[in-house]
């Protein structure tokens, strides 16, 4: 049945004499494989060499603090709603007097838990957050677990450590876009090179 004028017959089942004799094709194959035998290997020696995963990679979660060390999260619950895996749960709480240096907004998440085994790292929580609080780190994975009761991560593991802050080149897609344009013009130079050979 001819439906378009773009069709093209691609399958040729007639064998030539050389193809019938097995050996030429096998010799070609052997030549290809021996060429690869002496070629440079592409393997990344993983635990020692780590690969740069790109600026937008979706790795482990982090709850950001602002420059003064206050938690950004205001427990609006958008991330929990946006989560297709229903992995995020939180309990909101009112900020008390004297806690202004701890929490940025009047409301904060007293409990913020992510079930790391339910999470599918789709990045919808990061996109849903209106307060620049939830991010998926581009430089770290969630480690493997050996017990099922380790997998629900509370704020102790999620909130950013002020001594070891998480930075990345661009926080939103627009920033990433702007930075990328700069880099293309040669203005920005802090490009982390890929670890692969």
């Amino acid at each position: 049945m001819q439906l378009t004028n773009r069709s093209k017959q691609v399958s040729n089942k007639q064998m030539t004499l050389a193809e019938r004799a097995y050996l030429p094709a096998i010799a070609t194959g052997l030549a290809i494989t021996i060429k690869h035998f002496f070629a440079k290997k592409v393997t990344i020696q993983y635990p020692e060499v780590k690969r740069y995963l790109g600026p937008v990679f979706r790795g482990r979660h982090i709850l950001k603090r602002d420059a003064e060390g206050r938690e950004r999260c205001t427990a609006c619950g958008l991330c929990a709603v946006a989560c297709p895996a229903e992995a995020i749960s939180m309990v909101a709480s009112e900020r008390q007097k004297g806690e202004e240096n701890l929490y940025r907004e009047e409301k904060y998440a007293a409990v913020y838990e992510v079930n790391m085994l339910r999470c599918i790292f789709c990045g919808l929580c990061e996109e849903a957050c209106p307060k620049q609080a939830v991010y998926l780190r581009h430089d770290e994975f969630v480690p493997v677990f050996t017990e099922r009761d380790q997998v629900i991560w509370g704020k102790d593991l999620l909130v950013e450590d002020m001594n070891n802050r998480y930075t990345r080149e661009a926080w939103t897609k627009e920033e990433a876009h702007v930075l990328d344009a700069k880099r293309a013009n040669g203005e920005a130079t802090n490009v982390v090179p890929r670890a692969i050979p």
């Binding site: 690869h36 035998f37 290997k41 592409v42 393997t43 020696q45």
Partner: peptide
Amino acid sequence: KVAGFIQDRS
């Protein structure tokens, strides 16, 4: 090893 080398791995 040979399999690895032929297949571009170590």
